[in-house]
Simulated assay, not measured.
Amino acid sequence: MARKGVRPARPAAGHDVERTLDELYATPPSDFVSRREQLAAEAKRDGRADDARRIHGARRPTLAAWAANLLLRSQPQESGRFLELGRALREAYRTLDADGIKELSEQRRSIVSALSRQAAQLAREAGHGLSGAARQDVESTLRAVLADEDAAQRWAAGRLEGALTPPADFPSPDATTAAPAHRVARPAPAPPETRPRAKDELAERRRRRQQQLGRARRSAEAADHRLHELSAGRDDADASLRRARDRHDRAREHESAAQERLREARQELRRAEQEEREAEERLRTAAGAVERAERAARDAAQEVARLTEPIT
């Protein structure tokens, strides 16, 4: 039973604050603090003190962390496949031999590189280019997502505050010539009566390992194929953007030339109107002079006629 004077909790409030935090972590770092304070003030004004404290406690992400969050939110399907690939890789690394690890490591490096380029492109389109160090932090974060389940869960939440670091014991492409560090030592030879059973168990383990390797390879190939498609789409979008910018620049030049011609035409029109007014004034002056001359001529003719009349 709720105490008197205590407002009951609203189920929708938690959902509202989660959406608010998602929006906040999609905000570029340069605008993060001002947007955070605005959202916290709105929550406090609405009587949601707990939400306001949560919002106010949000920490501004680094540029690399924001780019990784942006990648997750902008490409949800590719991000989901990447997370699935990480799960398959972590499972496969527990049982694979050195050759299998090397193959998957090479695919992992290619996919991480492609995704980091895509994150940099998204950040640039949002008006915030990534430096070389920031791109390295994005790659480090993506490698951590593949290698560590906790890192994958943190990235999947879409609210990273800083770059993630992959665990040191996760095999790298340069360390695949040896067996995984956590491989169990080979047991001593079994007694003759237990060898058939051991062979069956070994065959079963190898079969499961090959299944895991197959799933990991399929996941990696699907992710790599999708990334190639996205890269091609990005290149097409870049080319379209360049063409649009060229057309925009030409149109701007045409507009400037048209405006200059219009300005000149208006000046010419003003000069013509001025000349027309002056000509009209001269015409009125000339007409007045003609009218006066005609009157003088009539008066002179009348005077001549009067003087030529006979005197009586």
Rank of each mutant, 00 (worst) to 15 (best):
A223E: 07
G5T: 03
E280M: 08
K44L: 05
E201N: 04
P167M: 03
A41T: 02
D249W: 07
A237F: 05
R217V: 14
H128Y: 08
S74Q: 03
R206Y: 04
L283W: 11
R261Q: 12
R284P: 02
R271P: 06
A144F: 08
R209Q: 12
E260W: 11
L213D: 08
L160K: 02
E273T: 10
E275W: 08
R282C: 08
A58S: 01
V33C: 03
A147G: 09
E221C: 07
P310L: 04
P187Q: 03
P196M: 04
I101W: 00
P11W: 00
L307I: 07
R271F: 07
A179Y: 06
R209Y: 04
D16N: 13
S30W: 03
P310V: 02
A64W: 00
H56R: 15
D200L: 08
S30R: 15
R270F: 09
T176H: 02
Y25T: 00
R206W: 05
F32Y: 00
G100M: 02
E309T: 14
Q107A: 09
R270H: 12
D22Q: 04
Q259D: 14
P11G: 02
L21K: 05
V145L: 06
G288Y: 05
A296L: 12
Q210W: 13
R226M: 11
R183M: 05
L122G: 03
L202W: 06
I311K: 08
A239L: 11
Q77F: 04
K4L: 14
G158D: 13
R226C: 06
L160V: 10
L70D: 01
A232V: 07
S256F: 11
P310W: 06
E294A: 13
A133K: 12
E253N: 12
R54T: 01
G14E: 05
L146A: 07
K44R: 14
R154T: 13
Q136R: 12
S240A: 15
A305Y: 07
R35D: 00
H15F: 11
L85I: 03
R250Y: 09
Q121N: 06
G5K: 08
L230D: 06
A2K: 07
P28N: 01
A287V: 09
G127N: 04
Q302G: 11
L146D: 03
S30E: 10
R183T: 14
A289F: 13
E253W: 12
A265S: 13
A49V: 07
L70P: 01
A181L: 08
R215E: 15
S113M: 06
S231L: 08
A151W: 10
E139V: 04
E161V: 12
Q153F: 12
A152C: 15
S110H: 06
E264N: 12
A251Y: 09
H56M: 11
L89E: 14
N69A: 01
R48Y: 01
P180K: 00
E193S: 12
L115Y: 02
L63V: 08
A300C: 06
L115S: 03
E84Y: 03
V17Y: 01
L160I: 11
E260S: 10
R205H: 03
E103L: 10
A120E: 04
K199E: 14
L96N: 01
F82G: 03
